[in-house]
Simulated scan of single mutants.
Amino acid sequence: MTTGSAHFEFGLNSFGDIATDGGRIQTDAEALRLLIEEAQLAESVGLDVFSVGEHYKEDQVDSATPVLLAAAAQATSAIGLGTSVTVLSTQDPVRLYQEFATVDGISGGRTQMVLGRASAIESFPLFGYDIAEYEQIFEEKLDLFLRLMREDRVTWSGAYRPPLDDVRLHPRMPDGGIPAWIGIGGSPDSVIRAARHGLPLMMAIIGGRPERFAGHAELYLRALSSFGHAELPIAQHSLGLIADTDEEARSVHWEHWRPVVTQLSEERGFYPPTAERYAEETDTGALFVGSPETVAAKIAAVARANHLSRFDLKYDLRHLPREVREKSIRLFGERVAPRVRELLDADPGEWRLTGRRPAQIVKGGKAVHA
């Protein structure tokens, strides 16, 4: 079940949020260049994966994720490069395959993806898709994308793109494709989908007690077995910020988190932020905000509860100062990650470590991509 805490992975996630620099809001071009610098920093402090999301809103510059990852590939040499997430529903799977095959080749095999249906739906009207077909679009495109990754030649037809007749795409991905996770926000149907397709699970936990997802993790592990798949990694994505003290981290994060969540509450109709709810989220909820020791203890606890082999921190936030972002990244890699490994070695609990590249399984003694 475990192979040692050295195999527990730590990822850094960005949604391309624009930072401030000396009190000045960065331009879009400056924000893009900052992301490449932060990928380099993440590698230098020993983190395992740097991922960029896909959004189409003001103050976020991650709409062309493969381009950003290709630039990061040239600026780094070892760190994994991924997505958080790729909105597969509004992408063309053929073009997506070609883009990520290109990034994987440029990076020397360091690319991976998290595939999702989208919690933010701005891309649906932008690219001419009907949100009423949300589920059907994703299922069809996932089927095609996985076939393109797993098969040498593909003949296919569906409702949302022209048919393919004995197509072999170029450039080629490695045999079996690149690591691809299914991102979920809490739907049991999505958990079952990941298991059915033999894909690792990325749980986006952005509110409430993270431990409530333990049931999803256990459902996933049972479903993998029922579908005849080997055990695969489970990961968690959550928001946070790390500073020297709990007080500093919470004060700075609250200042920038509050306006973002206020806007989201107005757009989506959920609770407006209050100091009391914020304290609850940082104490026992899904915000990983505090000193290195506080954040490490919280990650270790949720790793045990949710059967994790990887934890990803969404570190950026609209107009957060770039020096605050830098410090948080440094503390995450240099202080939090080693401390989590110490805590898990001392008390492993139910956490799971595969020691394999995400989305790999073992068949006949040979590791292959799931």
Rank of each mutant, 00 (worst) to 15 (best):
T3Y: 01
G4S: 15
L12V: 15
S14P: 03
I18K: 07
I25F: 04
A29M: 07
E30I: 04
A31M: 10
L35S: 09
Q40S: 12
E43M: 07
V45G: 14
V49M: 10
V49T: 14
V52A: 02
K57G: 05
G80V: 05
T83K: 03
Q91M: 10
D92K: 12
V94Y: 06
R95E: 11
R95L: 15
R95P: 01
L96A: 10
E99D: 15
T102I: 11
V103Y: 06
S107I: 01
R110M: 13
M113P: 03
L126W: 12
Y129C: 01
E133T: 11
Y134A: 02
E135S: 12
L142V: 10
L146G: 00
R147V: 04
M149R: 01
D152G: 15
V154E: 05
W156R: 01
G158S: 02
A159G: 00
Y160W: 14
P174W: 07
P174I: 07
G176A: 02
I178K: 14
W181G: 04
A194G: 06
A194P: 02
P200F: 00
P200S: 02
L201E: 06
M202V: 03
I205E: 00
I206H: 12
I206E: 09
I206G: 04
H216A: 12
H216L: 15
L219S: 12
R222P: 00
A223H: 07
I234S: 03
A235S: 15
Q236L: 12
S238T: 12
L239V: 04
D244L: 03
D246H: 05
E248G: 03
H253T: 12
P259H: 08
V260W: 08
E267T: 13
R268P: 01
F270A: 10
Y271C: 02
T274L: 05
R277P: 00
Y278K: 10
Y278D: 06
E280F: 00
E281P: 07
D283G: 06
D283E: 14
D283W: 09
T284R: 15
L287M: 15
G290N: 02
V295A: 12
V295C: 11
A297K: 13
K298H: 14
A303K: 03
R304Q: 07
A305M: 04
A305Q: 14
L308M: 11
F311C: 06
D316V: 12
D316M: 09
L317W: 02
H319A: 04
L320D: 09
E323C: 03
E323W: 05
V324W: 05
V324K: 13
L331P: 05
E334V: 11
R339Y: 07
R341L: 06
L344S: 13
D347I: 01
G349C: 09
T354W: 02
Q360W: 05
V362I: 14
G364A: 09
G364H: 07
A367N: 07
A370R: 02
